[in-house]
Write a protein that binds this DNA or RNA. Structure first.
Lengths: 183, 183
DNA sequence: TTTGATAACGAACATAATGTTTGATATAAT
DNA sequence: ATTATATCAAACATTATGTTCGTTATCAAA
C-alpha cells in the first residue's frame, strides 16, 4: 500500500479516536474529522464511503489486534484448546484491553459505547463458540450464548468504568464463577 | 392542557410509533413524521425541540406504564416479597413488555435502544436488590449485581429481537438457570 | 533520475435535512 | 362574543453530506 494512503488512513484514525474521546459518534461531523486530521474532504471520501464505515473499519482493526493471539492460537493448533482454558483466555484478553487503554477504551466506556460493543460482541461470540463446555445445555443454545457474550461484555464495561483497578485474573475468576463455569 | 395540543401530541406519538416499527430511528426524518401525523412543520417544533427529545419523552411514557404495577406493588405491601418469587416477578415483567409490543419493539431497535436500556437497568437494579439470594456472595457485590442486571437486560433484548415468540415463563426459566438461581 | 501513475488537494457544486420566522386562519376557553 | 393561542403553510437560513474536477505533490519502478 502506498505510503501516502497509509499516512492519511492513520491520520484519520487518530483524529477520529481523539474526537471519540470527547464527543459522541453521532455528534461528530466529517468536517471535524477533516480538520482534526488535517486532510482534504475528497481525500476522506476516497478512503471511506461514510462515517459509519470508518467506525466499522476502526473497530475491526482494534479487535483484530486485541483478539489476534486468541484466535490464531486457537485455529492453528488443536492442542491449544487443552493448553489454554477459558480462564487463561479471558485473562489474556483483559490484559490486551488494558494495554490498549489510551486509544480504544475511552471509546468503550465513553458515550459511543453501544456502537463499540456491537463489534466487541461479534468477536466474543466467536470466542465462546470455541468453548462449548461454557454453553449450558439445558437452555437453547442461542439464548445461552447470548447470555455469555452479553454478560461478559457488561462485565468488561463495568471493569473499565472502575478504571481497571481489579487485576484481570480476578475479573476472570469472578466472571467464571457467575456463569457457573468450572475448569 | 388545550385539546388541540393533546390531539397533535398524540398524533405525533402514534405516527412516530408507526414509523419506528418500519424503520430505524436514525433513518426517520422529521418530514416523515409530519406527513405521517399530518401536521405542520412549525407545529412539531412547538412541541419538541428535536427528534431525540421526542424519543426520550416517548420512552418515559412507556416505562411509566410498563413498570407501574411492579413498583407500586413492591412499595405498597411488604408481603408481596414473600408472595412472589423472582421467577414470578420476571415472568410478570416480561408479560408487561409483551403487552407493549408495538412501542417497545420500535424503541428498542438499533441505537434507539440505548435510552431504553438505561432506564430499564435502573429499574432492574432495584428489583434484584430485593432478592438478595440472587446475588452470589463469593464475588464482589457490585460485580455480581452488574452481572444480573446486565445479563437480564441482554436476555430481554434478545427475546424481543426474536419477536417475543418464546413464552415469558420459559424465558424466566432459562435465565434463572443461567444465573444459577434456585427458588 | 526520469517517468508514468496516482494520491492528496481545495474549491465549487448538488442534495437533503434541520430548525426558524412569518402572518393568516382556525379553534379553544371564559 | 371576545380573547388567547394552537395550527398552518410557505419561505428562509443553516448545516451536513457526498460528488466532481482540474491542479499539485508524491510515490514506485525502470
Amino acid at each position: 500500500m502506498d505510503r501516502r494512503q497509509q499516512k492519511t488512513r492513520s491520520a484519520i484514525f487518530q483524529a477520529f479516536n481523539r474526537l471519540l474521546e470527547k464527543k459522541h459518534f453521532n455528534n461528530i461531523t466529517v468536517q471535524e474529522i477533516l480538520d482534526e486530521a488535517n486532510i482534504g474532504r475528497s481525500t476522506f471520501y476516497s478512503h471511506f464511503e461514510t462515517k459509519d464505515e470508518l467506525l466499522r473499519e476502526m473497530c475491526t482493526d482494534i479487535f483484530d489486534h486485541v483478539f489476534s493471539h486468541e484466535l490464531c492460537s486457537e485455529t492453528s493448533h488443536d492442542f491449544s484448546l487443552s493448553d489454554h482454558g477459558l480462564h487463561e483466555k479471558i485473562t489474556h484478553l483483559l490484559y490486551h484491553l488494558k494495554d490498549n487503554k489510551g486509544n480504544v477504551l475511552g471509546v468503550l466506556s465513553g458515550e459511543s459505547g453501544e456502537l463499540f460493543m456491537r463489534y466487541f460482541k461479534e468477536y466474543l461470540t466467536a470466542m465462546f463458540e470455541q468453548y462449548p463446555e461454557s454453553i449450558k445445555r439445558d437452555v437453547p443454545r442461542e439464548f445461552a450464548l447470548n447470555h455469555l457474550v452479553g454478560s461478559f461484555a457488561e462485565a468488561v464495561k463495568w471493569w473499565i468504568g472502575e478504571k481497571m483497578k481489579i487485576p484481570p485474573e480476578e475479573v476472570a475468576d469472578y466472571y467464571l464463577k457467575l456463569i457457573g463455569y468450572s475448569s
